[in-house]
């Protein structure tokens, strides 16, 4: 039972209509799938939205969910993508409590991850970092040595490489 369940990347292209998000969320929740992150944004044309969902669960359950989502009237496409097929990015904002003495080391870590300082006070610093989710994880891990006051991550967005369709 304790086997770690795989994480899946799903991209859903959906007509921008009321209820579409709830219908999709219900397809997951009804089958016991936990959504780890969900990003909804306008598609290339105004009437459509792009949803990127990462969720944990077994393969059979995932196949069911993809088919259940695909048949929703508002959904144009629902696809799973392996990590290799896509470029994946996430943006994170981390607020760390730091005094002048600690600032140097925090900035060093930030520099290593190419994070930007977007806010700075006597007692805190806010870093903005972009990249793969693992990169964000790694940076956050290193910053834990200080006091992380707040952490906000957008969740992963993905796009198929080359000729592939997201």
């Amino acid at each position: 039972m304790n086997k770690a369940l795989p994480t899946h990347n799903l991209s859903i292209y959906v007509a921008n209509r009321p209820g579409a998000l709830v219908r999709i969320a219900q397809a997951f929740s009804r089958r016991g799938f936990n959504i780890e992150s969900l990003v909804v944004s306008p598609g290339a044309t105004g009437d459509f939205s792009r949803m990127t969902i990462t969720a944990k669960g077994d393969e059979a359950g995932l196949e069911q969910i993809i088919m259940q989502c695909s048949k929703l009237v508002d959904v144009l496409a629902c696809r799973e993508h392996s990590d290799e097929e896509v470029v994946a990015r996430e943006l994170g904002l981390v607020k760390v409590a730091v005094d002048a003495a600690q600032r140097g080391e925090v900035l060093q870590i930030a520099d290593h991850f190419r994070a930007k300082t977007v806010d700075l006070t006597e007692t805190s610093i806010v870093l903005e970092v972009t990249g793969g989710s693992e990169k964000l994880d790694a940076m956050v891990e290193l910053l834990r040595k200080f006091k992380i006051v707040e952490l906000v991550r957008t969740g992963k967005v993905i796009m198929a490489r080359g000729e592939g369709e997201t």
């Binding site: 009321p18 209820g19 709830v22 219908r23 219900q26 009804r30 009237v73």
Partner: peptide, 13 residues
């Protein structure tokens, strides 16, 4: 609309 989401093929408000 929300009450019936899981039991309709589609719906409109």
């Amino acid at each position: 609309f929300n009450l019936t989401l899981p039991i309709v093929k589609h719906s409109y408000l």
